[in-house]
């Protein structure tokens, strides 16, 4: 949606980066090669870690929300201590490095939507995101376009995602500028009475936990949009 798109569409042209490497990529590579030479880890260790970290998706977050919807006591534990409650669905924010990788920090707070408060997350300074529970952030979440506009024009940005609220709903933006990471707990939609946790988890999609969408009983992230 907001991806930069500045290359030519010549089907026969070699695929190449349009911008070259930036200084942070050079720095990362230099530090990584030094660490490998020093024997701190091997190139394969690094590849395995990257593959694992990049394969984490939003299913952990979906499980947390679904479990909280059906279990009020878990809901209370999750809101009181997000990092600790995550362990109940098998997510340890300290795994595997003991210092919070693949998240940079390990303070995790769940923001509960209510009929009068709608939460939405952003990081204006960079792209802080609760990776252990939601995986890698979507491209648009990392763009300056989203980051600077969500704090200044939240209702306009939400409207661009198809989400509208009246003056009776407080739109509360959370700018995760320091060490905490946040996830939105959306409200359970009508039409899901008696559903199992697995059924509920399927409709709790990534965007509903960022706060730019609301779950619907008839929609999952893996449904083809054309089916509706």
């Amino acid at each position: 949606m907001t991806r930069t798109h500045d290359h030519d569409h010549d089907a026969h042209a070699a695929i190449q980066s349009s911008s070259g490497v930036n200084e942070f990529e050079v720095l990362e590579q230099a530090v990584r090669e030094l660490a490998i030479e020093k024997g701190l880890f091997s190139a394969e260790d690094h590849r395995r870690f990257s593959e694992w970290a990049e394969s984490i998706g939003p299913s952990g977050g979906s499980k947390l929300v679904a479990k909280a919807w059906v279990d009020p006591e878990f809901n209370a534990r999750l809101l009181a201590d997000g990092t600790e409650a995550c362990k109940e669905v098998g997510i340890d924010w300290l795994d595997p490095t003991g210092v919070g990788t693949p998240s940079d920090y390990t303070y995790f707070y769940v923001l509960e939507n209510t009929p009068t408060v709608h939460n939405v997350i952003v990081c204006t300074l960079c792209s802080c995101y609760p990776r252990p529970v939601l995986g890698m952030s979507p491209d648009w979440y990392r763009t300056p376009h989203y980051r600077r506009r969500l704090v200044r024009w939240p209702r306009e940005v939400l409207a661009e995602f198809g989400l509208h609220f009246g003056p009776d709903v407080e739109v509360r933006v959370h700018d995760s500028n320091q060490k905490s990471r946040f996830m939105v707990m959306p409200m359970r939609p009508d039409g899901t009475e008696g559903w199992t946790e697995e059924q509920l988890a399927a409709i709790v999609t990534r965007d509903t936990m960022i706060g730019v969408a609301q779950p619907k009983a008839d929609w999952t992230a893996t449904s083809s949009p054309s089916a509706g």
């Binding site: 704090v151 200044r152 024009w153 939240p154 209702r155 306009e156 003056p167 009776d168 709903v169 407080e170 739109v171 509360r172 933006v173 959370h174 700018d175 995760s176 500028n177 320091q178 060490k179 905490s180």
Partner: peptide
């Protein structure tokens, strides 16, 4: 926070 904020009075922003 913002001059001429275009949302509603109830809207808030939290940060650390």
């Amino acid at each position: 926070l913002w001059p001429n904020y275009t949302g509603f009075d109830v809207d808030t922003l939290e940060t650390e």
